[in-house]
């Protein structure tokens, strides 16, 4: 049972060496390199994923900041718009008031003018009437021109209204 057979030893060594040579070339090298490549791939994938996660976190923080900024801005804008609106409203109202007052004023002036014109006309009418009446009373003796002057001077003495 413990007999050593040198032939079998040599066969074993030869078989082993040939097997090792073939396996190294055909199996172990491709297997180990594929394994290393995959491990490297997994490691880099994890690194990439971690980096992506970090970036995403960063991006999210940035976005949050942006949103906050935008909100502040929007509220400011809204306030400004509101203020502007108020101001505009006030201006418009003011303008309208002004316009109205102006219209009233000019209407009053017009009325005044009309009244004056009417008075002037009335006055000349009255003078004419008075002359006619006086002529009728005194009887056509009076020189029209002379009388007219008399009446006008009288009328001038009268108060304006």
């Amino acid at each position: 049972m413990l007999d050593i057979n040198p032939g079998l030893i040599i066969w074993t060594i030869v078989t082993f060496l040939i097997l090792m040579f073939l396996l190294t070339k055909l199996a172990w090298k491709p297997l180990l390199s594929a394994l290393e490549k995959r491990e490297e791939h997994i490691r880099s994938s994890i690194d990439r994923a971690e980096k992506a996660a970090r970036d995403a976190e960063h991006q999210a923080a940035e976005n949050k900041k942006h949103i906050a900024n935008a909100e502040v801005k929007a509220s400011k804008l809204l306030k400004e718009g509101h203020e502007l609106g108020e101001k505009l409203k006030a201006e418009i109202v003011e303008k309208a008031h002004h316009h109205a007052r102006h219209m009233v004023e000019s209407a009053k002036l017009e009325i005044e003018r009309e009244k004056e014109a009417a008075l002037l006309k009335l006055r000349s009418e009255v003078a004419d009437l008075a002359i006619i009446a006086a002529k009728k009373i005194i009887g056509e003796t009076l020189d029209v021109e002379k009388h007219r002057k008399v009446v006008d001077s009288y009328l001038d003495e009268l108060p304006k209204n």
Partner: peptide, 21 residues
């Protein structure tokens, strides 16, 4: 059986290497 084993190992390992690459 030494050779049988060697052939089996070779066959399995090469098949595995083919598949994995």
């Amino acid at each position: 059986f030494l050779w049988v084993s060697a052939i089996i190992v070779l066959f399995i390992a090469v098949a595995a290497a083919r598949k994995n690459t």
